[in-house]
């Protein structure tokens, strides 16, 4: 895969990691307003980055959470363990 695949993927992984960690934190600290603001900001950033990634490299999400090109490209390699 081109270098840009790895660079953009790593940006997504970084933002999504913040989202995973904040999710667990908020599960036990549900009243932390600053954390919720950060969560919503990162959720927005994640969506922007994924739209950019999907334009170049195809859908990231299954079952209709990403749109498909023609022909159907969800099933196309590479899968995450192949890169």
């Amino acid at each position: 895969m081109p270098e840009s695949y790895y660079q953009l993927m790593e940006k997504i992984q970084a933002v999504d990691f913040v989202l995973v960690d904040l999710t667990l934190y908020l599960d036990t600290h549900p009243d932390d307003l600053e954390a919720i603001k950060q969560f919503n900001q990162k959720a927005y950033e994640s969506k922007q980055l994924k739209a950019e990634f999907e334009n170049q490299f195809g859908p990231l999400l299954q079952y209709g959470l990403s749109y498909s090109n023609y022909p159907w490209n969800w099933k196309d390699a590479p899968w995450p363990w192949q890169v």
């Binding site: 790895y6 993927m9 790593e10 997504i12 992984q13 999504d16 990691f17 995973v20 859908p59 990231l60 999400l61 299954q62 079952y63 959470l65 899968w79 995450p80 363990w81």
Partner: peptide, 12 residues
């Protein structure tokens, strides 16, 4: 569950 075509963290 919904599968996402990415690993949580880069694996090399």
């Amino acid at each position: 569950w919904v599968y996402e075509k990415k690993l949580q963290y880069p694996v090399k």
